[in-house]
Measured scan of single mutants.
Amino acid sequence: KKIKIKIKVYNPETKEVLELEIEVSEEEAEELAKKLAEELEKKGYKIEEVEI
């Protein structure tokens, strides 16, 4: 079964909002969402919402 992940991120420095969407297997979904959120935060983005 495929799971659709939508991530909306906001960069306070540039006032930019990015929306990302990807489909992955159920097993990958939670781990991938967690890794993406961590990487984006390292780059200065503030995570507003992660929906699985």
Rank of each mutant, 00 (worst) to 15 (best):
15 K>T: 13
24 V>K: 01
31 E>R: 05
31 E>V: 04
6 K>Y: 11
10 Y>M: 10
29 A>L: 01
38 E>F: 12
1 K>S: 11
9 V>E: 00
43 K>I: 08
34 K>R: 09
32 L>I: 14
32 L>C: 14
14 T>N: 07
17 V>R: 09
17 V>P: 02
5 I>T: 00
6 K>L: 04
43 K>E: 08
35 K>E: 13
5 I>E: 00
42 K>I: 06
31 E>M: 09
24 V>D: 04
40 L>W: 15
48 E>V: 06
18 L>H: 08
34 K>H: 04
17 V>I: 13
35 K>F: 08
20 L>V: 13
7 I>R: 00
11 N>W: 07
18 L>D: 06
48 E>H: 04
50 V>M: 08
3 I>S: 11
26 E>H: 09
13 E>R: 05
33 A>Q: 06
43 K>R: 12
26 E>V: 03
3 I>K: 06
25 S>A: 12
32 L>Q: 14
28 E>K: 15
33 A>W: 06
17 V>C: 10
30 E>F: 11
5 I>S: 00
23 E>P: 05
33 A>E: 03
34 K>D: 05
33 A>C: 12
37 A>H: 04
48 E>R: 05
3 I>A: 15
19 E>Y: 09
1 K>I: 07
44 G>M: 01
21 E>I: 13
44 G>E: 02
32 L>W: 10
49 E>V: 08
6 K>S: 07
42 K>E: 04
2 K>Y: 11
43 K>V: 06
11 N>T: 07
18 L>P: 00
24 V>I: 04
31 E>A: 10
22 I>V: 14
31 E>W: 13
51 E>Y: 15
16 E>S: 05
3 I>G: 06
48 E>T: 13
31 E>D: 05
7 I>M: 12
35 K>N: 05
5 I>L: 08
21 E>Q: 12
35 K>M: 07
39 E>H: 05
51 E>C: 15
38 E>C: 12
48 E>D: 04
32 L>F: 09
27 E>I: 11
10 Y>W: 07
32 L>P: 01
45 Y>V: 01
49 E>I: 12
28 E>Y: 15
23 E>G: 06
5 I>F: 05
18 L>F: 14
50 V>Y: 04
45 Y>F: 09
15 K>H: 12
31 E>K: 12
47 I>Y: 01
8 K>F: 02
44 G>L: 01
48 E>S: 06
3 I>N: 14
22 I>Y: 13
37 A>E: 02
7 I>L: 12
35 K>Y: 10
49 E>A: 12
2 K>H: 05
41 E>D: 04
19 E>M: 15
13 E>V: 06
4 K>S: 11
45 Y>P: 00
39 E>C: 13
49 E>P: 01
10 Y>L: 10
30 E>R: 06
18 L>G: 06
2 K>R: 13
31 E>Q: 06
20 L>F: 12
38 E>H: 10
28 E>V: 09
10 Y>K: 11
28 E>D: 12
16 E>I: 09
25 S>T: 09
20 L>N: 02
33 A>Y: 06
20 L>Q: 02
8 K>M: 04
7 I>A: 02
52 I>P: 02
20 L>K: 04
24 V>G: 15
14 T>K: 04
45 Y>Q: 01
3 I>D: 03
8 K>P: 00
6 K>I: 08
25 S>I: 07
36 L>I: 06
33 A>H: 04
32 L>E: 10
8 K>E: 01
34 K>P: 02
16 E>C: 11
48 E>W: 07
40 L>Y: 12
4 K>F: 11
47 I>D: 00
22 I>E: 09
13 E>K: 09
26 E>L: 03
34 K>L: 04
21 E>R: 08
2 K>T: 14
30 E>D: 05
11 N>G: 02
26 E>R: 05
1 K>R: 08
31 E>P: 07
9 V>T: 07
7 I>F: 11
18 L>C: 15
26 E>P: 15
28 E>M: 11
37 A>S: 13
26 E>D: 06
51 E>S: 09
45 Y>K: 00
26 E>I: 12
37 A>W: 09
6 K>V: 10
29 A>W: 02
11 N>D: 03
43 K>N: 04
2 K>N: 14
30 E>K: 09
36 L>K: 03
29 A>H: 07
22 I>G: 02
45 Y>R: 00
12 P>E: 10
13 E>C: 09
14 T>E: 03
20 L>D: 01
37 A>M: 14
38 E>V: 12
38 E>S: 06
9 V>M: 14
